[in-house]
Design a protein around this nucleic acid. Structure first.
Lengths: 220, 220
DNA sequence: CACTATATTCAACAAGCGTTGAATATACAA
DNA sequence: TTGTATATTCAACGCTTGTTGAATATAGTG
């Protein structure tokens, strides 16, 4: 047993164990000893490599955040190039934003699955959202909002932001993999089925954007 | 000072303090001593009234869950009556589902605001969702899914469930009041502005439902 | 008043927490 | 080999945690 564990360095094992546990139980629901135990490592080693518990949490979050952010940037750029002079379609922009779902679906690594749930935790936490989201993700969000403005030139800026907020929420609950949709449908739909979640979410939110951001008659 | 505190019983103060703290920091991020301190009450009193910490958490969650669930049932029923023989509109059904936003907006009580964030926490937590959501809320959800089926008779059941999932996510992030939309818009949009969140969300998700659930040509 | 049930306080328990400094093992260069 | 930096273990620290049982206060009843 523990074949795969051998192929990873101990510090990687710590990050992976922490990722899995933080994703499920949140920052305060996990102890350093639980992390060390799951990583099959001494308790003091996590402190040695990453410093305090909070710094370990940052390290876990940032590790894949930077990968994700860089990929998002690349995908949006390519989509813009591909569209050439013509406007990008709403669907193309949204596809790029929903990239986390595609990454989690295509990579078989359970690490990415765990990270998706961790991302959902940070997104929905009043405490951690403020601390962790701005540093890495805010620039990408601005780029996406700009792309949306170009695709919806007549829209009010606030409407776009609120729609973006709804998309972000739908995405977050999907990433969280709470298993609720499985329970409600008796297993017919699966929380882990990012593929379907992705394919249906694109037309859903595209239609929402078009409805809310369409030119209005009057608004008092 | 502490004028209002006097008008509440100590056990109410404990529930309110726990509600506020659990909503912001999660179950594990709050200690019994913090709750007691905020409620201006002895540490042992919370145990005396509510039992173990986990039982206190359940008490906090269930207190308003039952009110909310009952109101939801009533609103949906009335909306069905009002529609009479004709089908309910999608918008009417969604309005009823988004009731938590209206309650939080109309009641000035900060307690309801805190509870909204607690609800978001439970909705997005893989651990608590399974424990707390089924007992009170599942029956209401089934009723709503049924209403949606009537309004969208040609839709595939799975599509409806996935769309419901997106709505649930958008709602959850709104309830969470993370302050992210405030930061992204420089204060132009406000997390606490449930009124706008509600008014824009209805057309947004109604359009999404119609798009995803419209009769398809073919699907391989 | 006395009696009783409920409410509240107090002090303390054992267990678990994050973190650290010193001791030891390992890897690699000279 | 010896020397040195890095990696890992060990034992322990002071502190906080949830919870409890006994002591005390309060309220209501006869």
């Amino acid at each position: 047993m523990a074949k795969e564990k051998e192929s990873e360095s101990k510090s990687e094992r710590i990050l992976n164990a922490a990722e899995e546990l933080f994703a499920r139980h949140g920052y305060d629901g996990v102890t350093m000893r639980q992390i060390a135990s799951r990583a099959e490592v001494d308790v003091a080693l996590a402190n040695y490599h990453f410093g305090k518990k909070e710094e370990l949490f940052h390290a876990v979050f940032n590790r894949r955040a930077e990968i994700l952010s860089a990929t998002r940037r690349k995908v949006l750029m390519e989509s813009q190039k591909q569209a050439g002079k013509g406007k990008q379609s709403l669907e193309q922009i949204i596809e790029a934003f929903l990239l986390p779902l595609k990454i989690a679906q295509e990579s078989q690594e359970p690490g990415w699955r765990n990270y998706m749930a961790l991302l959902a935790y940070v997104l929905t936490s009043p405490v951690w959202n403020e601390v962790l989201m701005p540093t890495v993700f805010d620039k990408r969000v601005e780029e996406f909002i700009d792309a949306l403005k170009s695709a919806l030139p007549d829209a009010r800026e606030e409407d776009i932001h609120w729609c973006y907020h709804y998309v972000s929420g739908a995405l977050a609950l999907t990433l969280a993999q709470t298993g609720r949709i499985d329970r409600l449908t008796g297993g017919q739909c699966k929380s882990t089925d990012f593929d379907t979640a992705y394919n249906l979410m694109i037309p859903f939110v595209a239609a929402g954007f078009r409805e809310v951001c369409k030119p209005k008659k009057k608004r008092k």
